[in-house]
Simulated assay, not measured.
Amino acid sequence: MTKAERRALQEAQRAAKAAAKGEGSKAAAAAPGAVSSEITKPNKVVKPSQKKSDGASVAPSEKKGPGGERPPEKERKKDVPHPRMQYDDESRVEKAKRKAVVKQTEARNRVELFRHLPQYEHGSQLPDLESKFFQLDLMHPAVYKVGLQYLYGDVCGGNARCIAMLKAFQEVIKEYSTPPEKTLSRDLTTKINSYVSFFTECRPLSVSMGNAIRFLKSRIANLPLTMSELEAKTTLQLDIDQFINEKIILADKVIVSHAVTKIRDGDVLLTYGSSSAVEMILLHAHELPQKP
């Protein structure tokens, strides 16, 4: 129901209520003893909360904006369909294919259980990757090497892929030189973005990789303008080492030390996938002395 229809319905209800009230008062005045009954009838005490509720003829969700009308954004939100998974929406899939940096060959033998997900021939995107990135001198050799390791499965696991990516970024920063008439923060961020696009085409980013990328770009953006290029590069390399040690290695150790306290001898554990942290938990729990 649109706003105009709701308003018309409310006006009609108010008019019908007023007409019924007028007819009721006329009938009461014509009936014998109506005056005496009205005098002897005690006045009804209306609570403030009732007045407030009776006066609010419009629901909270239907409040009007400053101009007397609901903002168009809220109207549009009501018409938005229920969100669906990305690969269950054909329009989203086609849009993602158009925005893809490289084209991949659809797999001939598709797994029926995962038919709703994209399935490509293994390694079919390599020639296109080379033509778009490597041969155009847009790709650092360290980044290209790590991307191929993602593509062929030589480096797998969220933490392992994140560390490999950060190590490649360290090589990029080490050999980086600010072009003339450009600033280090903007130019280096642009390069990082292009490398991230390359990694994404090789394999979708893990959660830890996304966090690491945001961390590095934040550090680059917050570099003081008065800092020399050498100092900035050294600072960024140290920041990457600190992120790896604290957010990945040390974090895994803390997770393992806490998780092993939940495992008892004879427990049956169900795992999904091949997480390095879960593997460390199981190995460490196996090495601990059995508890009575």
Rank of each mutant, 00 (worst) to 15 (best):
E23H: 15
A160M: 10
M85Y: 09
C156N: 05
N245R: 08
E201L: 08
E229V: 09
K145D: 15
K97D: 06
Q125R: 14
A29S: 07
F215G: 12
A59H: 13
N245W: 02
R98A: 11
F215Y: 13
L288D: 05
K51E: 13
Y87M: 09
T2Y: 10
K51D: 04
G147C: 10
A221R: 14
P81H: 15
A30L: 07
P60D: 14
K52W: 05
T40K: 15
K47Y: 04
A19C: 07
A259L: 01
L216V: 11
R6M: 07
V196D: 04
T189Y: 04
K132E: 15
T234G: 14
T2N: 04
K167M: 04
Q119H: 02
K21Q: 15
K44C: 04
T200C: 06
V207S: 08
K182N: 01
V155L: 07
H258W: 03
T190R: 05
R110G: 05
L188E: 10
L223R: 00
K182P: 12
A59G: 09
L166E: 06
F133G: 03
A20T: 14
V101N: 14
D79F: 03
D89I: 05
T178I: 10
D187P: 01
S275A: 10
P66F: 09
Y87W: 12
A12E: 00
L113N: 13
L148H: 15
A100P: 02
P180F: 12
V207W: 09
R219H: 04
G22C: 01
L126Q: 07
F134P: 04
H122G: 00
A221D: 03
G65Q: 13
K132Y: 14
K174D: 13
E279R: 02
D154C: 07
Q170E: 01
S53W: 08
H116R: 11
I220P: 12
R203I: 00
V268K: 11
P81G: 03
L129H: 01
S25N: 08
A259S: 13
F215N: 13
I220F: 08
L148A: 12
E279D: 05
K145P: 14
R92V: 15
Q135Y: 11
S91L: 01
Q125D: 10
K17C: 04
T2D: 13
A277N: 02
V45L: 12
S228K: 00
S276I: 15
L188I: 14
R203E: 02
S124Q: 00
A4K: 00
D154F: 15
T200Y: 05
L148E: 05
K145N: 12
K174T: 00
C156S: 06
D154V: 11
H284K: 13
A100H: 08
K167F: 07
T178D: 04
Y144T: 10
V207N: 12
E112Q: 12
P127L: 08
I173M: 10
R14T: 00
L188W: 05
A168D: 11
L113H: 03
L205Q: 04
V111P: 08
G67H: 11
L129Q: 14
S61D: 13
M209G: 06
F114S: 02
K182D: 05
D128W: 06
A30H: 05
I255W: 06
E11T: 00
A27E: 04
I255R: 00
A168K: 08
P204V: 07
L236P: 06
A31L: 03
D265S: 14
G67T: 01
K47F: 01
